[in-house]
Write a protein that binds this DNA or RNA. Structure first.
Lengths: 200, 200, 200, 200
DNA sequence: AATGAATGAGAATTCATTCAT
DNA sequence: GATGAATGAATTCTCATTCAT
């Protein structure tokens, strides 16, 4: 561990403190002083590592990108080897578990993406499209093999992702009616119906 | 138009100016001075009509509530008299047109509902549930008549509404690929598949 | 009753409303709108009768002056005809009752006299000196007749007035220990001792 | 002098500037900008040290408390060893000198105590009662030794303190008639008469 | 690397007062 | 005589950021 890793460590610290506050209070409602306070860190020290408030959002952005990327990378290979129907079920289930784990992140970006720089915004959208792509690929394989019947697999993939994200951004409604397992099970039915050749 | 209507007129003016800025820059990023400036109105004059910045959000909230309410009221009666499949198609199509017309509103509240007072938040959610209810009712009628096959019509209705709202909050993605008509058509297929007795 | 008396009536109304608020919240903490609100009167109407916020204080000032003046005038003649010791006791007792009745006024001016115009301030002080003069005259008569022994009757008179006013401005302390009657009785002893030829 | 003392120094500076303005114009008539202006200090810098306008009043409050406390502590021990009559004279004389030195403070709190928080108000009153207690103790010792004759020493002590404070809050009247020395001398006579066994 | 101090700009809100009707 | 509307100036306070040490 040399010079570099202290900086890295500090930035991780800042990210953790900021994330907690951003999620609790929103980006604009969180002041740089709040973040420094949360970490018992001097404001100027914080600036030493991040450059600006937007830089902190950048850290959080990067973290999110990694979390999404991790999901894509983890499952792409696995799914390729599965039969389409099973792959789709598996992917939906795993993605919903991911959404559950990172629900705060999901909600946060639905609300605060507008505070990103255009470049950051674009990057986030691209990452999201990667996730969509996973589902789209499965669907296309299913269509080719005659298992699925979908006219517009891109849109269907989009739908799937949004319906999973919904678990996060409608939690006030859904959590009082379903457990995650129930939600996975019910939503799976509807999603499969959307793409299957004939009813269920 | 008497005494009362100047105040009403002014409040409408404020609502328009504020809405435009809120949508462009977000609620927290819009200052009361910004709004007054946009309207060439003295800040104190503005306060004469609204009481507080949150009061302005309240105006916008009320406006939104009315817009949603109008939709519910307009279609509820009509839909009751239609055969379920037709009713669903018609409802989806009309709701998507509504989302197109009020896309800014839809996006805004997905992002800024957290700035509402608890009471206002609750009211908004209840209004949303009314919209969902419209779809749920159609689905239930369809299930009873054997036309539809859905295990959880509440969730299916939710899905439909979210997939329509998606036209607003994913416009950056969807608008470059579809016209509204295309989107209606494609999404309709997927939605119908989700609920129909046997594929499509 | 013609034009004039409406104005007079209005001003009385304003005085009452303002007095109540000034006493409750202090002069600077009371806004002209507060006063108008208290009276269900339009702000501009209020201004029609008073000219400025300070004008309202002027009304209150005038009212106070009259209240003090009334006391002076009421007792001066009576006291002249009494034997000094009895006169002093009677004057102290009556003045304390006056302080009790107008305690809010007394406290108010101890605190807010600084907001008066120099002329108003001077007038108030002169009125106060009239009250002091009542006591001073009694003392001087008593000294002449050999009943009292006071080197500096002006100061002694001052003391008496302040010790009576104290019932108002230290009420937080005194009211929890004494009733007005007890206070009159106890303070009388001390005051008489201050001026009597030989203790009590 | 280390890190800490700059903050302390600054706060002292602020206290001095604020005190001067508070006394000249009153608490509510003094704006935070006024204070910052008086000190050639940026408003935000001022806030860095005090937190709020009320915090500045708190500084002033604390300062006053210390000034009063200093008086109590300085004389309590000394007075205990003196014979009651001498002790009383000495205490009155010293307290009047204290009032002369801190007349602005005395006047200020008679007028502005209402702007304190309940807790601060209570603390101030308790401190005042300590001062009263000094006189009360002397009186009680005098009564026990047969030197003094007072029915209600608590009230007599109160009177003494108020008559001394009067030198501050009636200065507009008294200063044009007496020097401090004269006032001490004259008032002493009256006070001693109030408590002595038999005239003077 | 770390920090206390400093600051200009700007936030929401309130006020006493005026004026046209 | 009464009133709703209008306003410029001022209020307290917060913020992201920089700098000297």
């Amino acid at each position: 561990m040399g010079r570099k890793s202290l900086a890295t460590e500090r930035r991780k610290q800042i990210l953790r403190g900021a994330a907690s506050l951003f999620i609790r209070k929103g980006y604009l409602n969180t002041s740089v002083r709040d973040i420094a306070g949360e970490l018992d860190m001097n404001v100027a020290t914080l600036y030493h590592y991040v450059g600006s408030k937007n830089g902190i959002l950048g850290l959080f952005h990067e973290y999110t990108m990694n979390a999404i990327d991790f999901f894509s990378k983890k499952y792409r290979a696995v799914l390729e080897k599965m039969e389409p129907a099973r792959a789709l079920k598996y992917a939906v289930s795993e993605y919903l578990k991911w959404v559950e784990e990172y629900q705060d992140l999901t909600v946060f970006w639905y609300q605060e993406a507008k505070n990103l720089s255009p470049a950051q915004f674009k990057a986030l959208k691209m990452q999201e499209e990667c996730t969509i792509q996973i589902f789209q690929t499965i669907l296309e394989r299913g269509i080719k093999s005659g298992k699925f019947k979908v006219k517009d697999p891109a849109l269907a993939a989009n739908n799937i992702v949004v319906l999973c994200d919904m678990w996060a951004f409608r939690r006030w409604l859904l959590k009082e009616r379903y457990t995650l397992e129930q939600y996975i099970s019910e939503q799976m039915d509807l999603i499969m119906a959307q793409v299957s050749r004939s009813g269920r």
